[in-house]
Design a binder for these strands. Sequence first.
DNA 1: GAAATTATTGACCATTTGGTCAGCTTTCTT
DNA 2: AAGAAAGCTGACCAAATGGTCAATAATTTC
Lengths: 216, 216
Amino acid sequence: MTQAGNAQAGPRARQRQARIAQILAGAERVFAEAGFEGASMSELAAAAGLPKANLHYYFGTKEALYTTLLDSILALWLSATDSIRPEAEPAEALTAYIRAKMRWSRERPQASRVFANEVLHGAPYLRSHLAGPLRALVQEKSAVLEGWIAAGRMAPVDPPHLFFSIWAMTQTYADFGAQIGAVLDLPEPDADCFARGTDTILQLVLRGCGLEPPGR
Amino acid sequence: MTQAGNAQAGPRARQRQARIAQILAGAERVFAEAGFEGASMSELAAAAGLPKANLHYYFGTKEALYTTLLDSILALWLSATDSIRPEAEPAEALTAYIRAKMRWSRERPQASRVFANEVLHGAPYLRSHLAGPLRALVQEKSAVLEGWIAAGRMAPVDPPHLFFSIWAMTQTYADFGAQIGAVLDLPEPDADCFARGTDTILQLVLRGCGLEPPGR
DNA sequence: GAAATTATTGACCATTTGGTCAGCTTTCTT
DNA sequence: AAGAAAGCTGACCAAATGGTCAATAATTTC
């Protein structure tokens, strides 16, 4: 047990992880509401329920805290395309992908907003990740769609732009929830709103790609 | 000419308007890049090419400058739905609307980003406008779509959600240009990117609504 | 052309910001 | 039990921020 301590870890390391998670959870809320510049270390500390100096003990700088959070969010962001594989049925795969993206908007709206804010301001910290892993992922999945198109299994589309549209439509329910809520006279998008939104997006994408909703 | 001074106005008033426009133009750039909190009065002043105290002379506070800019942007935002009228051909009307929205993303990406940033952070200054004029506009245009649907001129859709999707897809080319650029290996979305994006969105929306591209 | 109005700006201010640090407590190791 | 290591935090700091203001310059107005 000298240096491993990975399995169930010592109580010390466990405590440490819990504290870090606690700080990141608070930071997600605060950064989502205020953006990077708008969030102050005092607010971040208050949100974590810890003294300010304690955040500096764990993360050093505000920027380090922010990039750590961003990295964890991007990892989540990237992990939703599993359903898109060559052997899959196009309609089913796209449906699963869209539903997964909508679930993410519903369950993690603050994470979505932190990501959106970063990209909106030019992605200074995320640019390299976007041009690296994300670009690779898009190329890989675009090839799958190209295959389906070539096989006549769906109508021709420009795969990357189809992804841009799907991202935009699904994330808008988290990122622009204030606008949607205002228009629909809700404090924020509710379950019914998400259900209708999902149906609308599915209709646009499936019909747009010449597909029928998957029978189950 | 005692109190009117509206036609061509005195040189004094004209100068005043020019200065205000100059400040707002700079502010659009700075607020788009940094958000409200991230933009400092010194940056805003530098972008306008004027001393800081001069901005305070014209606008009083940073907040007043920001809300003035936001109001002017919202006015632009609201003025693009003209094509959607009961007598119009659905395919033509939607095509014109989408093209207008894409043109706005192309030509005024910074204005779009200022708006997006405001909504992303809960629309504190814009909420009342969104729940007022915007909601009214959506209800009016939704009624037009309902009419088309009832008349069998297009497939059933949930009109407000169709608008949410169209806004999301078109604005993403301005607001998330950094992401799109990173994926496509461009510094920022270019003409070709916008052309392909427009085609993709038109395909999704028109086919999604059971319409054919308008022959012209 | 003198008085009044409007426009301009450098110097200044109180407050808040991200960050540091010395000293304290707790937990682990032997 | 004693020493070492890790965790914690109140008090503090230099820098930056939004905003003020008195002095000055430019235009109008009469």
